[in-house]
């Protein structure tokens, strides 16, 4: 009772990184709150889930194994969580801020009337004083998230409703094994006790999920293009540089919105958070929502024709010039000097 529950995202029988990252965070929070860490897996053929998650410090794994639960559809997964939460009364429930978590989370929170905070960048435990009501709450979950295009950071609490729900994007939290020998219990759930048949109303006719080709969050070198790159064609220069240096190409939200790069490459608060050794920002103006997703990079180079671009303030090197001019020279002088 009053434990911490993580909803596991499972694709082809594999638990997603975002869920493992949440288990890592959930374990820390559970230690602080002196409660158990639990996980719920809903899908089909889930025999190996236990071996995938127990060593992250999972004490209880709830399994709902049924052919109809995969691929994910909203209503059955919602009913499962709503009814399980009513039984178990977790204090905190975490899920990934993914296509699935952001479809499921609000639905569950609405059904339970419990507050949900989307896209948290940090989760902490602390107290809260409701001055109006003269009440002090201790051991609440601080759900810390950017708002207003990233220009402010808000700390949100849910004083009275349980569970306290939060979603977190992939790559924001670190993934760390707790103990390779950690062993939890598995509890199989009888699906019909939780999910009515009427919930299976959405028919998935076709489905193409690509394995992520991209590994932005683990790249040591990232070359990011902003709106200032000017065109999808100019973006090719960034790929050339990335190939030569052995890096990956990222993009700002403006560049993605303009169609210069795929959404998967977006870096920032509404994209991926990265911490590479070298970050080269090309034609990126540096809106706060972007900077928040890359400011922990060890070294930052900004290439921008505007010497007053906001991103220059946090760059180690500022090159005032155009992408078309600077990048070919970088490639040329890298090749010349690296041998």
């Amino acid at each position: 009772m009053n434990n911490i529950i993580v909803y596991l995202e499972i694709e082809d029988g594999i638990v997603g990184d975002v869920s493992l990252e949440l288990l890592t965070k959930g374990r820390q929070l559970a230690n602080q709150q002196k409660c158990k860490l639990e996980a719920v897996a809903a899908g089909y053929q889930l025999d190996t889930i236990g071996t995938q998650v127990f060593h992250y410090g999972v004490d209880t794994l709830y399994l709902a194994d049924d052919k109809r639960l995969y691929p994910y559809t909203t209503l059955p997964h919602t009913s499962l969580l709503v009814n399980l939460f009513k039984e178990e009364k977790p204090q905190i429930a975490l899920m990934g801020a993914t296509s699935i978590g952001r479809d499921l989370g609000p639905r569950v929170s609405s059904a339970l009337f419990s507050g949900l905070t989307a896209d948290c960048t940090s989760l902490e435990i602390g107290s809260y004083e409701d001055k109006k009501a003269g009440k002090v709450y201790s051991d609440l979950l601080y759900q810390i998230r950017p708002a207003f295009g990233g220009n402010i950071v808000a700390t949100i609490v849910n004083p009275d409703c349980r569970p306290q729900m939060a979603t977190v994007r992939e790559g924001v939290m670190k993934k760390e094994l707790c103990d390779p020998a950690y062993k939890g219990k598995t509890k199989k759930l009888n699906l019909s006790d939780y999910v009515p048949d009427e919930d299976f109303v959405i028919e998935v006719i076709e489905r193409h999920i690509e394995k992520s080709k991209l590994n932005l969050k683990n790249s040591h070198i990232i070359i990011t293009g902003g709106y200032g790159v000017g065109s999808a064609d100019n973006f090719k220069l960034l790929y050339d540089l990335a190939n030569v240096l052995g890096g990956e190409v990222g993009a700002s939200r403006a560049a993605v919105d303009a169609g210069f790069a795929e959404h998967e490459r977006q870096i920032g608060q509404t994209g991926v958070t990265v911490r590479p050794k070298l970050y080269i920002a090309c034609g990126v103006s540096g809106q706060i929502q972007h900077i928040a997703g890359m400011q922990e990079s060890a070294m930052i180079i900004s290439i921008n024709s505007d010497p007053h671009a906001p991103i220059n303030a946090i760059a180690d090197y500022v090159i005032t010039g155009t992408v078309e001019d600077v990048i070919p020279k970088m490639i040329k002088y890298y090749k010349k000097n690296s041998k």
Binding site: F113, S114, G115, L116, T117, Y128, D130, Y142, Q143, P146, G150, N151, I152, V153, A154, T155, I156, V157, N158, P159, D160, C161, I288, A292
Partner: peptide
């Protein structure tokens, strides 16, 4: 509204 804003900081 179950969620309350505890604090707002400018970035």
């Amino acid at each position: 509204s179950p969620t309350k804003v505890k604090q707002i900081e400018n970035v």
